[in-house]
Structures are given as structure tokens and as C-alpha cells.
């Protein structure tokens, strides 16, 4: 222990006196190398009684730290750079190939859509993909044997149920189980009997949104959708609300936004119209509120539904809907 104390003071003093980098390197080797003095002190440790072992061990560690620090400081003052510059490693070689994964582009799009509505104050509610006629049609004011059902050609299942044709059944479920004020967005997969082509798929993703409270009207719908379009596609992009028909909204409309490809001048994408249709919307039909047990004279609401693939196609310029379901590696790896 004494011997070590002496060596410690001595070697720390020696650092101060050195003026030549080579000498410094020699000292470093003498002390720190594998067969150096510090190592030889270490070999003594196992033979010592536990208490001495502990105190010498601690002293050795603190010396090593102090010595290295001073040595580096000296080296820096002599060379102007660290003495430990690695010289034998080609740092331009690639690192270990940890790969980062990717979310699917549809889920990237969902994140954006849902993020916007969450920020406005909507809650996310999900529902099942296998539904009954009540939630998918009747509760949404689609009478049986009505031509309005033609636009939502369904897959029927052998268990007597059907695959939902839109995410609106969640509207029925939420309205039947909660009281206004309600503000909900509902994402999910939907199914319609459309053969697969560049703009149709028999499975697709939709985001439904609805708000029910006192005094809700077309202005609230427009305000909400305008926020969405602004956040999703860019501030200042114009929208227009074109009258349309859906059984579960009245008035019903389709929402167009100014074509983002030609800034409304007219191009191939918007078929020269300057507008691109992005969703259906409207004021919730009083029968929908009434059949869920709400007083439509007190409450009103708006609802909208958009195809997530369509939004993704516009936002990320994907020309063909089938690409989303092909799962080609080149596609899967592209989007972060």
C-alpha cells in the first residue's frame, strides 16, 4: 500500500515535467500497459485480506482515473489533439446492419388523419368488421329492399351476418350507448363487392367521424372539414360542399377539394374539373338519432366518411389502389 502511494505521487509528478510526446507515450506504457505497473499492483489484490483488498482496489481505480485524465490533458497540450486518436480503424465502413422497420402507408395515413381529429377533440372508437343488418343498414336509415343499398353491395356471411360496408355502424353503436355531446372518429376496414381495380378494392379502409351536440349545423361541418383539409393537404386549399344523397345524412353532400396537382386549373387527375372528391358528409339524419334514442329536436350532428386509400393516394401520389395490398418489399420499405 505504501509502495503504491509513493508510485502514485511519483508518476503523477512525472507527467507534469514531460515536454516530449514520445516520453509521455513511454510513461503511459510503463503505467497502463497490460504488463505495466498498475497491472502488477492489481495482481497483488487476490492475496490480500478482504479489508486491505477493498481499500487498495479502490485506490488503484481512482489512481487510474486521475492518471489517465492528467495524461490526456498533457498530451493535448503537447500535441494539440488527443493522444488516443485511433489509427487502425476504417471508420467509413458501414455499421452493423440493424434495419429500421416501416409502418404500412395506410397506417401512416391513418396516423395523420386521426392525429388531426384527435387534436380537434374527437375520440377514437373502433368497431367490429363483421356486423349485422341493423348496425350497417337499418339503424342508418337504409330501409330493406331500397335501391340506396345498391351503392353498398355487401358480402354476406354464412353466420347470418355481413361484412360492414362502411365504418358508419360505429355511429349506430356509439349513439345507442352514449349521450351527447359526442365527438368520435372511427377508423377501420370495410368491404364492398367491387372487383379489384386501380381505384376499387373489395376491402378498403375508411375513417368515419361524427359530432352530436346542441346547435350543430352545416357551418360546424364545413369548419371541421376545412381544418382537416388544411392540415392534411396544406393551408388555404379550398373546399366545396356539393349536394348529394346518403340515407343516413340529410342534407347530404360530397366534399371536393381544390385539385392539389394543378391548383384548381384542371388536369388529368381531376378530369379537368379543378376539384377532387375526398369524402361524403352531411347532417345526421333525424331518423338515425331517433332510432338510437336521441331527441333530434334538441340535438343535431354532422357526420363524414373518407376512404383512407383515397387520401393516401392523393397525399403520397400513389396511382393504383392495388399497390396497398400487394405488399411488395420495394413499396413497404419506401414510407417512413
Amino acid at each position: 500500500m505504501k509502495e503504491f502511494e509513493q508510485y502514485r505521487t511519483n508518476s503523477l509528478e512525472r507527467i507534469e515535467k514531460i515536454k516530449d510526446p514520445k516520453e509521455l507515450e513511454q510513461l503511459k506504457n510503463e503505467v497502463l500497459s497490460r504488463k505495466g505497473r498498475l497491472a502488477s499492483f492489481m495482481t497483488l489484490l487476490p492475496g490480500l485480506p478482504p479489508e486491505e483488498k477493498r481499500s487498495l482496489g479502490a485506490a488503484l481505480n481512482s489512481f487510474k482515473e486521475e492518471f489517465t485524465e492528467k495524461l490526456n490533458a498533457k498530451a493535448e497540450s503537447l500535441n494539440g489533439v488527443s493522444a488516443y486518436k485511433p489509427s487502425s480503424v476504417d471508420i467509413t465502413m458501414e455499421g452493423f446492419p440493424f434495419s429500421s422497420g416501416r409502418r404500412h402507408l395506410i397506417n401512416v395515413t391513418y396516423d395523420k388523419i386521426l392525429g388531426i381529429f384527435r387534436a380537434i377533440g374527437f375520440s377514437i372508437v373502433e368497431g367490429p368488421e363483421v356486423e349485422d343488418d341493423h348496425n350497417n343498414f337499418e339503424g342508418l336509415n337504409f330501409p330493406p329492399d331500397h335501391p340506396a343499398r345498391d351503392t353498398q353491395d355487401s358480402f354476406f356471411l354464412d353466420n347470418g351476418l355481413l361484412l360492414r360496408t362502411h365504418t358508419s355502424p360505429v355511429q349506430v353503436r356509439v349513439l345507442e350507448s352514449s349521450k351527447p355531446p359526442i365527438a368520435v372518429v372511427s377508423p377501420g376496414k370495410c368491404y364492398r363487392r367491387d372487383p379489384l381495380d386501380a381505384s376499387h378494392s373489395f376491402m378498403f379502409n375508411q375513417t368515419e367521424g361524427f359530432l352530436v351536440d346542441e346547435n350543430i349545423g352545416v357551418a360546424d361541418l364545413k369548419g371541421t372539414i376545412d381544418i382537416f383539409i388544411g392540415e392534411m393537404f396544406g393551408k388555404g386549399i379550398r373546399s366545396r360542399f356539393r349536394p348529394h344523397f346518403f340515407p343516413f345524412t340529410e342534407p347530404s353532400m360530397e366534399v371536393d377539394m381544390e385539385c392539389i396537382f394543378c391548383k384548381g386549373k384542371g388536369c388529368g387527375v381531376c378530369k379537368q374539373s379543378g376539384w377532387i372528391e375526398i369524402m361524403g358528409a352531411g347532417i345526421i339524419h333525424p331518423s338515425v338519432l331517433e332510432s338510437a334514442g336521441h331527441d333530434y329536436k334538441k340535438y343535431s350532428g354532422f357526420a363524414f366518411g373518407m376512404g383512407v386509400e383515397r387520401i393516401a393516394m392523393l397525399k403520397y401520389r400513389v396511382g393504383d389502389m392495388r399497390i396497398f395490398f400487394e405488399n411488395d418489399l420495394e413499396f413497404l420499405r419506401q414510407f417512413r
Binding site: 384527435r118 380537434i120 377533440g121 374527437f122 375520440s123 377514437i124 372508437v125 373502433e126 351527447p180 355531446p181 359526442i182 365527438a183 359530432l211 351536440d213 350543430i216 352545416v218 357551418a219 360546424d220 364545413k222 369548419g223 371541421t224 376545412d226 381544418i227 366545396r240 360542399f241 356539393r242 349536394p243 342534407p251 353532400m253
Partner: peptide
Amino acid sequence: GYAQVEPKRPYIRSPAGLN
């Protein structure tokens, strides 16, 4: 014409459930 309806930012009274 809905174009003549002035948009209004909705006031959402229900708290956003976090799901």
C-alpha cells in the same frame, strides 16, 4: 348553396377520450 355558409370551427364539449 352550401358555398354561402360561413364555416365555423366546432366547439367540442365532450372531452377527447384517449382510447
